[in-house]
Design a protein around this nucleic acid. Structure first.
Lengths: 101, 101
DNA sequence: TTTATATATGAACATATATTCATATTATAA
DNA sequence: TTATAATATGAATATATGTTCATATATAAA
């Protein structure tokens, strides 16, 4: 008996592609990689990665919209941290995989 | 003692971003999803997904360059199949993850 | 040979994306 | 209040990307 092919529905397709799109940009990878360790402020991320503050802010919004990161405010400072174990695990795996080749 | 931050080297960063870029496009996701089952010809893929033959050919080249798919020739027909277990596993995981949300 | 079929390729184009700049918002300190 | 610091936002822009079209290449059949 043949296993029937189940086409991917639009919604799943969109969600999956968006998730990978988040991981497809070097800047976002570097940001998420930083957040493996611990939460960091926007300024801190920008300094460590030598990036424009505005650029970091834009990328964090992108990641926040996909719920890959979350934030908390402390005074004037906003601290960002990871918010999706599954995706972070996939990123870690793929980095490891790439390193050993 | 603080765990030191190890910045990602350029090569790893490029490889990782390229890998995710391959998975970041709905058309390529659909193609790879088809190849979960078994090898398929270019025409077959195009028919099943209702895509332009040229489009499929371009996408397959992209995937082939990243060694995510391989091919074999049989007469005039070229059959493509998956060639990276790790990446296919990640794709499967993420599709499952997306379905159940 | 000529013809038909399967696939690949390059150019063109429209759209998407990443980044920067200037400025707005928000919160604190003076 | 005014000034300062941290972050967010929108417009502008340059570049990247996906798709189509027309055509080239490769193989097989007539």
């Amino acid at each position: 008996m043949e296993k029937p092919y189940l086409p991917l529905d639009e919604e799943t397709l969109f969600l999956v592609s968006q998730t990978f799109k988040a991981l497809a940009d070097p800047t976002r990878i570097r940001i998420l990689h930083l957040l493996f360790e611990r939460e960091l402020s926007v300024t801190n991320i920008a300094e460590r990665l030598d990036l424009n503050q505005s650029n970091v802010s834009h990328q964090l919004r992108f990641l926040k919209n996909l719920r890959l990161v979350k934030y908390r405010r402390d005074g004037k400072t906003i601290y960002y941290s990871q918010d999706d174990e599954h995706v972070m695990k996939i990123l870690q795996q793929t980095i490891d995989h790439a390193c050993h080749h």
